[in-house]
Simulated scan of single mutants.
Amino acid sequence: MKLYIKYMVSNCCKLMVKEKLSALGLTIKNVGLGEVDIDGDVDVTQLSVIQKTLHKMGLELMIDNKLIQIERIKTAIIDMVHYSNEAPEKTYSAYISEKLEGDYPYMANLFSETTGYTIQQFIIVQKIERAKELITYNELSLSAIATKLHYSSLGHFSNQFKKVTGLTPSFFKALKTKKRLALDEILKNSTKN
């Protein structure tokens, strides 16, 4: 059985969820971002216990199929932007469609109707958050960051960064006091709209 979990967007979350669900006596086959494969099925009572356990960790068990699809889209994007060093060999839409084995226009419409913003806007926000993280580490030049995040040029990266944050990347780098949002905060804020 597959469980879908909202706000589960980091490796730390994966470890905590695996530990807590194992402690409940569930046999975990696989843990991914936003989802857990367990051996066998769970009954209503177990589902309630799982929900309460996840809630204590700031996570939510999802049951609505549309919300599950939205979280799967977000998780695929987060995985692509934050955890993959290679550019998708295809367009973002083709990557998402292939990864989730679904019709991209349907997913894009569902995403927009449910969240109030487009998949492309979500990708941009994720890329800028990743850029802020990389700038804060101060290990790469701005050109290297633009390349790593698959921007066509430093100018394109700078324009998009300024549009989202109100600051140029070089000013942000000099500022060093601007706090980044945690991934789970971005997701929580984005679902409240």
Rank of each mutant, 00 (worst) to 15 (best):
P105N: 07
F161R: 04
E139F: 08
L167D: 06
K163C: 06
V36G: 05
S10W: 06
H150S: 09
K192C: 03
T115I: 11
S22N: 08
T136Q: 14
S170P: 00
V42C: 13
T136C: 06
P88A: 15
V49T: 14
E133W: 13
K90P: 02
A87K: 15
D184V: 12
D79N: 11
K188A: 10
E185D: 13
T27E: 10
L142F: 06
E113I: 03
I128H: 01
I123H: 03
T118K: 08
Q120M: 02
M16Q: 11
E133L: 12
E86N: 12
A182D: 10
V9C: 15
Y137G: 02
T75E: 15
I38H: 04
C12R: 09
L134V: 04
M57G: 02
Y92P: 02
L61T: 08
R72T: 01
D39S: 05
G116Y: 08
Y151S: 03
E113N: 12
L100D: 10
V49I: 15
S97Y: 05
V36M: 10
E98F: 07
I145L: 03
K74M: 15
L100S: 10
T75M: 15
Y104A: 04
Y95E: 05
L24R: 14
S170M: 04
L175G: 02
T136F: 11
T91L: 14
T27R: 12
R72I: 02
M8R: 06
H82Q: 11
D79H: 10
E98P: 02
K56F: 06
M1R: 04
L110M: 15
M1H: 05
K179W: 07
A182E: 10
S93V: 11
I73E: 10
L167R: 08
I68L: 06
L24H: 14
V42M: 14
I135V: 12
I70T: 06
M57C: 11
Q160R: 09
G102P: 08
T177V: 15
N138H: 06
K20H: 01
C12V: 05
I68W: 09
E19R: 15
E19Q: 12
H156Y: 07
N138P: 07
Y104W: 07
I50R: 00
S170L: 07
S112N: 13
T191D: 14
L67R: 12
T118H: 04
L47G: 08
E71D: 13
N159G: 01
T53L: 10
K29S: 02
E185R: 12
K176L: 02
L54T: 09
S10H: 05
P169R: 01
K20L: 00
R130E: 07
V164P: 00
